[in-house]
Design a binder for these strands. Structure first.
Lengths: 146, 146
DNA sequence: TACACTATTTATAAAGATTATAAAATAATA
DNA sequence: TATTATTTTATAATCTTTATAAATAGTGTA
């Protein structure tokens, strides 16, 4: 789907859930969809301060929580200080560079088998799983050898 | 291996690396090995304040970092506020209850295949991966139905 | 065992991310 | 357009983690 299509669909989702569409929410969604990075709340705040000089950081956090609760956004927590936020499109995993922190999307068929086994062994009703892969991206590999 | 054996081996590892054995380090290691929970730094701090009334939180954090650097301990970051720390025994994954937060260990052969594909597709030199499984434990399931 | 050297602990403050609060502004709806 | 509940803003508070410097204590050696 096009990015405009994604935005429209996201806005529909919000309307259906009774969440008001404010300019700030519109802009945050747009930024999340357009940016292929996986920004932190502060990244978003900084990126939009030109457009919304008076916007509060709390607004960014509040809305990211709203989006997360509605299922539009996933919150990613890695070892570092702050969470990253990812607009939910289709199921994919992340490959993360230990050197520069770059995050690359990586599609892989769902690991249903793992979930089933886990459920069987632990007695849990399994809902979902998360997986990340860590390594060194080619840029960083090149730098290392020089 | 017995818990005492694990502790002895951990202390050997520290000695080999030139890390001094202090009573605080001994106690933190012991607590990590004995407790099957996956405690936060604050959990450890609180658990040991009876034995070490003057111990500083910084000591707990410092030592957890030392242990991590030496490879004795893994730091786990989930969505919530603080990291959890896990004494490294053998490779395993975690199954986490969405209801009560309980963490259960789950053994599963390494997902080498995923790493290989990720490496191929993204051009990364893949080092490792992490995976967690989320669901509802049987205790919480029982409560829900009542 | 006592000494000397350096790592470690403590106490404290600082930094950084996130959340809480209350007043002002505004989107949705009739 | 008027109303009302939601949202934004501004600010402060909270919580986790790290930095700093002085005091303390492990460890190897004589």
């Amino acid at each position: 789907m096009s990015e405009e299509g994604q935005l429209k669909e996201a806005i529909s989702t919000l309307k259906e859930t009774g969440v008001r569409i404010t300019p700030q929410r519109h802009a945050i969604l747009e930024y999340l969809i357009d940016s292929m990075a996986h920004p932190t709340a502060d990244d978003i705040y900084k990126a939009l301060e030109g457009k919304f000089p008076n916007m509060s950081v709390a607004t960014v956090y509040n809305n990211l929580r709203v989006f997360r609760e509605v299922g539009l956004v996933k919150e990613l927590t890695y070892g570092d200080a702050s969470s990253r936020f990812d607009f939910v499109t289709t199921d994919h995993y992340h490959v993360i560079c230990d050197g520069c922190g770059k995050i690359v999307d990586f599609h892989y068929p769902g690991l249903d088998e793992v979930e089933q086994l886990a459920s069987h062994v632990t007695g849990f009703k399994v809902n979902n799983h998360r997986m990340e892969i860590y390594g060194t991206c080619s840029d960083c590999s090149t730098k290392e050898t020089h």
